[in-house]
C-alpha cells in the first residue's frame, strides 16, 4: 500500500507538469495557481514512503539509489513549492515547469530497473549518522542546483533583459543557498563518514573526485560573479556545467566508473 504512494507521487508530478504547460501555452504571466500545491502533495507522499521504508529497516532510508531518487525528487518538489510561494518573478512559471520535469524524470528513473525498489537493510559501512547527513544535505544542496540549472537554461533562452536579470538573480540565489548545504553534505560530512568507516577522510575515489569537481565548478561560478566581464553569460553557463557535473556525479560515476560508492 505505502509502496504505491511513490507511483501516486509520480502521477501527481506529471499532472502538475501538464497543468503548468497549459498555463504556459496560455501565456499566463502568473502561472497556474495550484500546481505547486500538487508538488507539495507529491513531496509529502514521497517522504511518507521514505519514512515507511526507514521504519522497516530501522535506519533512515537513504542508503540505495531508489531511495535517493525518491528523496531527491521530494526535495526538488518541496523547494519548487517554497520558491513559488516566496518569489513572484515572471520567470517562476518556467522555473517551476523545468524543475517539475526534472523531479518527474528522477521518479521515472526510480521506477525503472536501473533502481531496484526492494527494501534492503544497510550494510555495515552505511550504518552511520554521518552518512545520513552526507546524503541528505548533498541532495538538498543539489535540489537548489537543479533550480539554478533551470534558471540558467531560461537565461540563455530568453532575449528580454528584465527576464534575463531575474533569471540571473535566481541562478545566483539558488547556488548561494545550495552551495553551503552541498559543501557541508557532500564534502564535510562525507569526509567525516569516510574517516570513521575506512580510516581515510579522502581516497580520491571517483565519486569523491567528481563531488569535488562539482564543488569546484560552483566555486568558479561564485568567483565569476565577482568579475564584471565574466558576470552574466559566462557565469550562467558555468552554473549549467555545474549541474551537468552534479548529474554525472550522481549517475555517471555509478555506471561508468567504479569505486567505494558503487552501492548508491
Amino acid at each position: 500500500m505505502i509502496q504505491s504512494l511513490a507511483t501516486v507521487a509520480l502521477i501527481l508530478i506529471a499532472a502538475a507538469g501538464i497543468l503548468q504547460v497549459v498555463f504556459l501555452l496560455r501565456k499566463s504571466e502568473r502561472g497556474d495557481p495550484v500546481s505547486h500545491f500538487v508538488l507539495l502533495a507529491a513531496a509529502v507522499l514521497l517522504f511518507v514512503t521514505l519514512v515507511d521504508r526507514s521504519i522497516r529497516i530501522s535506519f533512515p532510508a537513504v542508503t540505495n539509489t531508489y531511495e535517493s531518487l525518491l528523496f531527491f525528487s521530494a526535495v526538488i518538489s518541496l523547494v519548487l513549492f517554497v520558491l513559488r510561494l516566496v518569489m513572484k518573478a515572471a520567470v517562476m512559471p518556467f522555473i517551476l515547469f523545468g524543475g517539475t520535469i526534472i523531479a518527474l524524470a528522477l521518479l521515472m528513473i526510480s521506477s525503472s530497473p536501473v533502481a531496484p525498489s526492494q527494501i534492503q537493510p544497510p550494510i555495515p559501512a552505511l550504518q552511520s549518522l554521518w552518512l545520513v547527513l552526507h546524503v541528505t544535505l548533498a541532495f538538498i544542496g543539489e535540489a537548489f542546483f537543479t533550480v539554478s540549472f533551470v534558471a540558467a537554461i531560461y537565461y540563455l533562452a530568453v532575449k528580454d533583459e528584465t527576464r534575463k536579470a531575474a533569471a540571473d538573480r535566481l541562478v545566483y540565489t539558488s547556488i548561494g543557498i545550495g552551495y553551503p548545504i552541498f559543501t557541508a553534505g557532500a564534502l564535510i560530512f562525507g569526509a567525516i563518514w569516510a574517516e570513521a568507516a575506512w580510516g581515510s577522510w579522502w581516497s580520491w575515489d571517483p565519486k569523491e573526485t567528481w563531488a569535488l569537481i562539482t564543488w569546484l565548478a560552483y566555486t568558479a561560478y561564485l568567483h565569476t560573479r565577482l568579475v564584471r566581464r565574466l558576470r552574466g553569460r559566462v557565469s550562467v553557463i558555468l552554473a549549467g556545467v555545474g549541474f551537468v557535473f552534479t548529474v554525472f556525479t550522481y549517475f555517471g560515476v555509478n555506471f561508468l566508473l567504479s569505486g567505494l560508492h558503487s552501492y548508491g
Binding site: 569537481i213 569546484l216 565548478a217 566555486t219 568558479a220 568567483h223 565569476t224 568579475v227 565574466l230
Partner: peptide
C-alpha cells in the same frame, strides 16, 4: 577562476 577551472 583560472586555477579553479584548471584543477576542475
Amino acid at each position: 577562476v583560472v586555477l579553479i577551472l584548471v584543477l576542475t
